[in-house]
Amino acid sequence: MPNIHRTNRQFPGGAQIGATNENIPSTAGLPVNNLSTDLDFFLPNPADPAHPLHYRFLFWNVCGTISNDAHHGSGTVPSSDTVATAWYVPVGPGDGGAAIVTYAFWVEHDAVVSDTPILSVNPAAAWSGGNNTVVSSTAGTGPRAITARDTVASITNANFDHWFPLGAGNATDAVLTVLQGGSTWALALYQHHDGGGARKPDKTTKPGPIQIPDPGPLDRSRMIDVLKKAQAQSSTDRLAQVLKKDQSSISDDDLRAVAVEMKANINRQQAALDLVNANLAKK
């Protein structure tokens, strides 16, 4: 009997937002109808308590079916564990640029991958090629016809299925057309065609020891309290937040937090350097 893992996540990174995190036992082959979530979602903002973090609903991924009706998320339960994810985007000041931003979305893994889904754009001047995921709305003339790649490197055993524009634009087969000057986001959906639906993220095709830490850390008595609390994520890094403050109000703890964040970045850079050096040493 499959479970549906129900969460709200921040687009595109996938960080969980809010406390919703539950497994809903379901029956394979039956429809899931009318899952409902809030159009707007607010969480406490520790950095600025007077201005709660604001998230706007983008789309549902219910058992592999993508839809943009917050109050009627639906899909069909596959034979294995799956997901029902309400994807949200933080609301905040944008740069106002006129562009079409594309994302390759791996439906079964319920995740955005970093590869561009774009194969070509007409007019060619609107796209700089390579792994660029953004198409200019102003360069060149006429509507932008964006053709999707059938496969992308990070997504295995899945092909392009269809475009899912989150704003302006019309899609026919692999081509998404957006009028000149139009700004939008669009998902290119990549999906297996084995009827498997979206897999629960913790299920892998790879084997591995199913870890049972010693002793089991599932500390239910306190965990339940934790899960009830809303969790917030910052959208800018710590240094940027500190720099925006009045210099006289910067505390020692602000600086300590900047140091910790920098150290986290250094840890990643160091790991990358070690890996690059290891690879170079083998060549």
Binding site: G13, G14, A15, P46, Q231, Q233, S234, V260, A264
Partner: peptide, 12 residues
């Protein structure tokens, strides 16, 4: 709370 946010960002 700031430390928590930093870790969550790193975890992502």
């Amino acid at each position: 709370q700031m430390l928590k946010e930093i870790y969550h960002d790193h975890d992502s």
